Lab assay of single mutants.
Amino acid sequence: TFEVERIVRKKIVHGNTSYLVKWKNYSSKDNTWETEDDIRTKYGDLVDDFEK
Rank of each mutant, 00 (worst) to 15 (best):
D48Y: 07
H14G: 13
T35Q: 09
T17Q: 03
E36S: 08
K52I: 09
E5G: 03
V47D: 01
K29W: 12
N16Q: 15
T35G: 06
T32S: 10
G44S: 14
I7T: 02
K52Q: 11
K42I: 09
G44F: 10
I12K: 07
H14T: 06
N16L: 15
V21Y: 00
E36V: 06
D48N: 12
V13G: 04
E3S: 05
E3N: 05
H14V: 05
I12T: 11
I39T: 03
S28D: 14
K42V: 09
L46T: 04
K42Y: 12
K10I: 06
K22E: 06
V21I: 13
I39E: 01
K11S: 06
K52L: 11
K10G: 03
F2P: 14
N31V: 09
K29N: 11
V21G: 00
Y26W: 10
K22I: 05
S18L: 15
R40M: 09
V8Y: 03
V47W: 08
K11Y: 06
E51R: 03
V47S: 02
T41D: 12
T35M: 10
E5V: 05
Y43I: 04
T1P: 13
I39L: 15
L46Y: 05
E36I: 06
Y43S: 05
G44R: 12
K24C: 07
K11E: 06
H14Y: 10
L46H: 05
T1I: 13
E5N: 01
K42P: 03
V47Y: 06
E36C: 05
V4S: 01
K24I: 05
D48V: 06
I39K: 01
R9H: 07
V13M: 10
Y26D: 07
D49L: 14
K11L: 07
Y26V: 13
N31L: 14
I12D: 05
T17F: 04
K29Y: 10
K11W: 05
F2T: 11
L20S: 00
N25K: 07
E3V: 11
T41P: 11
V4A: 13
E3W: 06
I7K: 00
W23P: 00
V21R: 02
D37M: 12
L20Q: 05
T1M: 13
K52D: 07
S18T: 11
N16K: 15
K11Q: 08
D49Y: 11
K11T: 07
T1Q: 13
N31G: 05
N25E: 09
L46S: 05
V4D: 01
K24A: 07
D48K: 09
T32D: 00
K24Y: 07
S27K: 09
R9C: 15
D45I: 10
F2W: 14
D38K: 12
E5P: 04
Y26I: 13
E36R: 05
W33K: 00
D30R: 13
N16T: 14
S18P: 02
Y19R: 00
H14Q: 13
K11G: 05
N25Q: 06
K10A: 05
V13P: 01
K10P: 01
D49A: 14
D30P: 07
D38A: 14
Y19F: 07
W33Q: 01
V4P: 13
D48Q: 08
D48T: 08
Y26E: 07
E51D: 07
N16D: 08
W23R: 02
D30L: 14
E5C: 08
D45Q: 13
T41R: 13
I12N: 06
I7E: 01
S18K: 12
K22T: 04
R6G: 07
V21K: 01
W23H: 02
I7S: 00
R6W: 10
S27N: 08
K42W: 11
V47F: 06
F50H: 03
N31C: 15
V47C: 03
K52H: 09
D45H: 14
N25C: 09
V13K: 07
T35E: 10
H14N: 15
V8S: 02
R6P: 02
V4Y: 03
V21Q: 00
T1W: 13
D37V: 12
I7H: 00
H14P: 02
K29D: 12
E51Y: 05
L20I: 01
F50S: 03
S27Q: 11
K42L: 14
E36A: 11
T32H: 02
G44L: 09
K11R: 14
I7D: 00
S27I: 08
K29V: 10
K11C: 14
F2I: 12
K24S: 05
H14W: 08
S27M: 09
G44Y: 09
G15I: 03
E51P: 03
K10N: 07
V4M: 08
L20E: 05
V4N: 00
E34Q: 09
V8T: 03
D30Q: 14
T1F: 14
I12G: 05
S18M: 15
R40D: 03
H14S: 11
Y26R: 15
E34T: 05
E51V: 04
K29P: 05
I39Y: 01
K10Y: 05
D49K: 11
N31F: 13
T41F: 11
Y19P: 00
R6N: 06
K22S: 05
E3L: 07
S18Q: 14
N16E: 14
N16S: 12
T41C: 11
I12C: 12
V47R: 04
R9D: 14
K24N: 04
S28V: 09
V8G: 00
L46V: 07
F2K: 15
I39D: 01
W33P: 00
V13H: 10
S28K: 08
G15V: 01
K52S: 10
G44T: 08
T17D: 00
T35I: 07
L46R: 03
D38V: 12
D38L: 12
N25V: 05
W33V: 01
S27V: 07
T1K: 14
D30G: 11
K29A: 13
K42D: 11
V47A: 07
V13F: 08
E3A: 06
T17I: 14
L20H: 02
F2M: 15
K24D: 02
L20R: 04
G15T: 03
D30V: 09
R6M: 14
V4E: 02
G44I: 09
N31H: 09
K29T: 11
I39C: 08
T35C: 09
T17L: 07
R6H: 08
V4R: 00
W23K: 01
F50A: 02
K52G: 07
N16C: 14
T35H: 10
W23V: 00
S27P: 14
W23L: 02
N25D: 09
E34I: 15
T41S: 13
R40Y: 06
E51H: 05
K22W: 04
S18A: 08
S18G: 03
Y43E: 03
K22F: 05
K29S: 11
I39R: 00
D48S: 09
R40G: 04
K29F: 10
T32Y: 02
R9P: 00
R9Y: 08
T32V: 02
K22G: 02
T35Y: 08
K52R: 13
N31R: 05
D45N: 13
D30A: 14
Y43A: 11
K11I: 09
S28I: 08
K10D: 01
D38E: 13
F2R: 15
E51Q: 04
V21P: 02
L46I: 10
E5M: 04
D45A: 13
L46N: 03
T41G: 11
Y26Q: 14
D48C: 06
H14R: 11
N25A: 07
I12E: 08
N31S: 10
Y19L: 01
